[in-house]
Amino acid sequence: MEFLSGGRAEVRITHADVGKRVSVRRLTGAPTGEPAFTDAVGVLTSWNSGVLSITRRGGEVVRIEESALVAAKVVPAAPARRKVPAATVRELQEVAARGWPAIETERLGGWILRASVQESPGGAGPGEAVAGRRAGFTRRANSVLAVGDPGLPLDEALDRVTRWYAERGLPPLLTVATGRPDADERLAAELAARGWSDEAHTSVRIAALAPLADTDTDTSAVLLSRRPDAGWLGLYNRTGTPTAAASAVLTGGPSVWFARVPAPDGGTAAIGRLVVDGRWAGFAAVETAAGRRRAGLATLVMAALAERALEEGASAAYLQVEADNAGALALYDGLGFVEHHGYHYRRGPAGA
Rank of each mutant, 00 (worst) to 15 (best):
P228G: 05
T219F: 04
A189G: 03
V249F: 01
Y236W: 14
A213G: 08
V256S: 12
N237W: 15
D216A: 12
G179C: 07
L223R: 07
A188G: 14
H201V: 10
T288Q: 02
T219P: 10
T162G: 15
D216Q: 11
V204C: 07
A284F: 01
L233A: 10
G179F: 05
L209M: 14
A177V: 06
A183D: 01
T239M: 05
P181W: 11
N237G: 13
A230C: 04
A259I: 03
P172M: 05
T268D: 01
V286W: 09
E199S: 07
A213F: 11
P228T: 04
L212A: 01
A207D: 05
P262Y: 13
R260S: 03
P264W: 12
G267W: 11
P211C: 06
P228N: 06
R163T: 09
G252S: 10
S197Y: 03
L223Q: 03
L187H: 14
V176R: 10
V222H: 08
A221Q: 14
G252V: 12
W232E: 00
A230R: 09
E167M: 00
R180Y: 07
W232P: 03
G240S: 01
Y165P: 02
G195C: 04
T243M: 10
A289P: 10
P172V: 00
R163W: 05
T251F: 03
T251I: 01
S220H: 10
T202K: 14
A221H: 13
V276K: 09
R273C: 06
T202S: 12
G278Y: 01
V222K: 08
V286C: 05
V222Q: 11
A221P: 14
A270T: 00
L223A: 10
G278W: 10
A213R: 02
A281N: 15
A245E: 06
R226N: 00
P262W: 01
R168M: 02
T239V: 14
A269K: 10
W257K: 00
T162M: 02
D277K: 09
T202H: 14
A269P: 05
G179P: 05
A177C: 09
T175G: 12
Y236I: 02
V276Y: 14
G231Q: 01
A200R: 11
Y165N: 06
T175L: 15
T268L: 01
S247Q: 13
A166Y: 13
S220L: 04
T162S: 13
V261T: 04
D218V: 09
L212Q: 09
W164P: 03
L274I: 00
T217V: 07
V261W: 12
W164G: 05
R227D: 07
R194V: 04
L235W: 10
L224N: 09
V161G: 14
S220W: 11
E199M: 04
R168A: 01
L212H: 04
L224S: 06
E190C: 02
A245P: 04
A207Y: 08
D216N: 15
T162I: 07
R238V: 06
P254H: 13
S197R: 12
A284L: 07
A213N: 09
F283M: 10
A244P: 04
P254E: 12
F283S: 03
A221E: 15
L191T: 06
Y236N: 12
V275G: 13
F283R: 00
P172N: 12
G253E: 03
A244M: 03
E185D: 15
G195Y: 04
T251Y: 03
R194A: 02
G253I: 09
G253S: 07
A230G: 08
T251C: 08
L233N: 02
